[in-house]
Design a protein around this nucleic acid. Sequence first.
RNA 1: GUGGCUGUGGUGAAGUGGUUAACACGCCGGAUUGUGGCUCCGGUACUCGAGGGUUCGAGACCCUCCAGUCACCCCA
Length: 421
Amino acid sequence: MLTTGPRGTKDILPDNSGHWQYVEKIIREVCHNFAYQEIRTPVFEHTELFLRGIGDTTDIVEKEMYTFTDRAKRSITLRPENTASVVRSYLENKLYSGPQPTKLFYIGPMFRYDRPQAGRYRQFHQFGVEAIGAQGPAIDAEVISLAVGFLNKLGLSELKLLINSVGCPNCRPVYRTKLQEFFREKLPHLCSDCQSRYDRNPMRILDCKNETCAEYSQGAPHMLDCLCEECSSHFAGLQELLTAAGIHFMINPRLVRGLDYYTKTAFEIQYSPLGAQSAVCGGGRYDGLIAECGGQPTPGIGFAIGVERVLLALEKQELLPKFTNAIDVFVAPLGTETRAAAFQLLTEMRRAGIAADMDFMNRSLKAQMKYANKYPAKYVALIGEDELAEQKVMLKNMETGSQELMDRSALVPMISEGMEK
RNA sequence: GUGGCUGUGGUGAAGUGGUUAACACGCCGGAUUGUGGCUCCGGUACUCGAGGGUUCGAGACCCUCCAGUCACCCCA
């Protein structure tokens, strides 16, 4: 259908583009406040980047990517998330040669072939942050603090910050084996998804919402009990910092992120009134990713926030500012003879920074007044035959209803002066 | 990928097999001379999501597809 957009896409119409601008403005303010700089990477990358970066057993890679072959037979994928791209750019542009850590943020569209539902689209937008090069827990705390700070600045409450540690290549295999041992005999009772998770990523069994699986995973060993010395102290350090900063959090040992590259810190911020799509922010540390992409081993941490979900939450809590289309002056020409003079006046006002519009529909004066009233327009500048002949303009104040005949040359100074007050 | 619900004008919606498809809002126009917000009047549906079928007759019943929506999965 020519008149229907592709499934799972949404137009941002004049009705709410102002809301997007508002959220983007807050994003930029908060990022500046935290000394993060904007990066803009392409919306498509070599498919290989996501296969390697995100992990080829993840749901995203297995069934949600928009992948196609370009005319030169290269496999290209629309980015399903932005961390891999940022890491690629960091390496390609040698950002590691600048002062460290490299602190970046981005806002932009991501693409996942999912079934659309409330708060979930095939093209959606993420605001995210990546801090590359620092390994201690302090940067973790900063990144989390930024996410929380952003959401708070928008006025959102009822937020839940969940944190966990998913270990590192030293301790995770140990844990993985323990988990597999724990589930070995229970395996036939688990759902089919979990049965396949058993081999590929047993940690995600813990995350299964299936009741039976949840029952069988009761008493499973926790990652937190299996952390190596380093991961353990990192996690403890993070908690200490968050507490010091007055950021409330809950430890959720079952929190597992869906992407393979996460190590140590994993976190999520939930806004439960959103229902099924309550995850507003997800992030974590990815100490192995940069090396995986061919760089020197370099630690990193970041998060992504779903802009549509934030907007839904703001709408729900009625936290969106009201926007107005109000203009200063509406120019109403009467008759075709006066159009040139009207257009000249309009242009003059616009050049002086006055928000102005005029009639383009050849409407009657009455209809023009109605139209001007809908903006609303503060003034209507009327030019009829009489005014045209005398170089005048009839200026009507739409709030008070009073009007006066004035020299056309006096109009711009008069309006400008009024605007400065 | 799986399941539930829905699909009538720009919008919200009546209509539950039988002549010209309610109503409200919006939009456009008008209510004697060049003037808005209130009121009044008028105009605004050549695919009732698409295609097939049942019937003398279908917007209404059946099938298929498509789309929206919600949920599962997963995630932002």
